[in-house]
């Protein structure tokens, strides 16, 4: 492989990983934007997403490396698996909010955040106890057709990731910008008391934020499984921490910021893996985080707002 092809290849890989991190980062940022809460249970909603997707695929007989289906049936199964995963994760997110966080509404301090850490442990342990602690093979049903540019290649799967991420992020952006509920979300994020006095049902806005963020985490979990061809109860931690970094890097609470932060983290991971050594990826990612926070405490696209009273 020529140096240029190698760079191109890692760029392609980085964009694919980055799209996954961006989807996951959006969940952190949407919830933070509205509640100023860092939701650590998001890590394991993502992990559960990969398990749900694996379960749905296996219902259709897809497991391991076998390519059983082609064409429209395969697309159909993938779409069904995606929709089921996203809805299931969205409802899980809403359930977490309803059961664990709503009772803490109005409590000052870090209680809600600590609670999300607790929920995160409950989720990962529940999966470990019911599914087993061993690593599972995630099915790989997508044919390995690829577009070749020199010796670099872009697989069909990578195109699918990009298209899917673009559709989901575009849909989220349109929802938040144009729909009535989306506007209520933005209004609540900017001034919760004023939004309440316009007649916005703040609980409904919070539920929507959890549903959307968790559904996107489910999609990211599905992508993770297809990308790495494995899953286990512990995948949420590394990927979740990187995605959280992406959200902070872009400016937490800022939706385009999370997208850009995610892509950046994906590219760093791919490039570091190629040129420096995969084990350095996290070192570079978190060093960059420290650097950005020192130079631009609000993140790349964030703005420093006066603390809400």
């Amino acid at each position: 492989m020529s140096p240029f092809d190698l760079l191109l290849q890692q760029f392609v890989n980085g964009l694919s990983l980055g799209a996954m991190y961006a989807l996951l980062a959006l969940g952190f940022t949407i919830v933070y934007g509205i509640m100023e809460l860092i939701n650590f249970s998001h890590f394991n909603v993502f992990m559960i997403g990969s398990f749900v997707a694996m379960g749905v695929l296996s219902l259709f007989g897809l497991s391991g490396q076998t390519v059983l289906l082609h064409g429209f049936p395969l697309v159909g199964v993938l779409v069904v698996a995606l929709v089921v995963t996203m809805v299931a994760c969205g409802m899980l997110g809403v359930g977490i909010e309803r059961l664990a966080l709503r009772p803490l509404r109005g409590v000052q301090g870090p209680m809600a955040m600590i609670t999300t850490i607790g929920v995160s442990y409950v989720l990962s342990n529940a999966v470990m106890l019911t599914m087993g602690a061993n690593t599972k093979n995630f099915p790989n049903p997508i044919p390995s057709v690829a577009l070749h540019i020199g010796t670099a290649q872009i697989t069909v799967f990578q195109f699918i990731i990009w298209a899917l991420s673009a559709v989901l992020m575009g849909g989220l952006y349109l929802f938040v910008q144009r729909s009535k509920l989306g506007k209520a979300m933005r209004a609540t994020a900017q001034d919760p008391d004023a939004a309440l006095m316009m007649g916005v049902d703040v609980n409904r806005v919070i539920m929507t934020a959890f549903f959307l963020g968790s559904a996107l985490a489910g999609a990211a979990g599905f992508i993770f499984g297809l990308y790495y061809n494995f899953t286990n109860f512990g995948i949420g931690f590394t990927a979740g921490l990187r995605a959280f970094t992406a959200a902070v890097l872009g400016g937490i609470g800022n939706i385009p910021g999370a997208m850009i932060g995610g892509l950046l983290i994906g590219l760093i991971e791919a490039m570091a893996g190629q040129y420096i050594g995969a084990k350095w990826a996290d070192v570079i990612i978190f060093s960059l985080l420290v650097l950005v926070l020192v130079c631009r405490p609000a993140g790349l696209l964030g703005r420093l707002a006066p603390t809400k009273s």
């Binding site: 009535k180 506007k183 209004a187 900017q190 008391d193 316009m198």
Partner: peptide, 21 residues
């Protein structure tokens, strides 16, 4: 509201829309 409390990063039109929420 006291001190007006508009939604600062929404347009004027969107602020009016919020009034009719």
């Amino acid at each position: 509201l006291e001190a007006r409390r508009l939604f600062p990063r929404m347009t004027v039109f969107e602020n009016l829309e919020m009034g009719a929420f």
